[in-house]
Amino acid sequence: MIVNLFGRIGRSTLQMIAKLGDVTLLSSRSLAFAGKSPWQGEHYVRQIYALGVGSFVIIAITGAFTGMVLALQGYYTLAKFGSESLLGSAVALSIIRELGPVLGALMLIGRAGSSITAEIGIMRVTGQLDALEMMAVNPLARIVLPRIMATLIALPLLVTLFDLIGLAAGYVVGVDLLGVNAGAYVGETVAKVLPEDLYAGWVKAIAFGFIVGVICTYMGYRAEPTTEGVAKATTQAVVAGSISVLAVDYILTSFFL
């Protein structure tokens, strides 16, 4: 019983390490094409455009609600210490350093990442990846790489959008609804948000964009070539992607403190 349990843990650990190795290998092979093959600007732009347009609305809505909730919740907490005037900076720092990149990444996984996985998985099932291979077009260079690049470039832009809308929504709730002094709110925000904070947020956004791209393309590329296989890969991409983003977020946050 106990031995069995240890055996299971050992086996799944080994499997996970093997998977990690495979992810690393596949993504580095894809990325190697970034320098080698002729510049595929057109494909990158098309992917970035698709991601941006597809995720724009959901990111904006999430940003708005996040800013509103933070202001509300923050006000309740800060009021206990009589320091409502700090509300602006509390909201801004939470969004810029933490919630913008993390929630932006999670939304990107749900909205665009899962469909990247499904798209590539379907190409696998229907033999389109093999067909590309037969036409001497490397699917890693042509399908995987542009999608990794797209999430890498699009997420920082989407996170910036998230931040701006989140800050605006926080202001509306804090100042117009809860009656915090407008000058104090803005002044606090401008005084406390330092360039390092913006920098930390963007570094996270770039890292998360990379992670989302790598994991979602990988899961599709290695999907078992059946319809259930693609469905499973899509779920796995969302789970593995979200957990990786949160784990890496912890690591990066500890660096930036």
């Binding site: 379907i122 229907t126 033999g127 389109q128 093999d130 067909a131 590309l132 291979e133 037969m134 001497a136």
Partner: peptide, 19 residues
């Protein structure tokens, strides 16, 4: 290999057109 693939064509069982 990619050079040789230029001399090969394949018609897949499910056609595998790029959709």
């Amino acid at each position: 290999l990619y050079e040789l693939r230029g001399k090969m064509g394949m018609v897949f069982q499910y056609s595998a057109l790029l959709n």
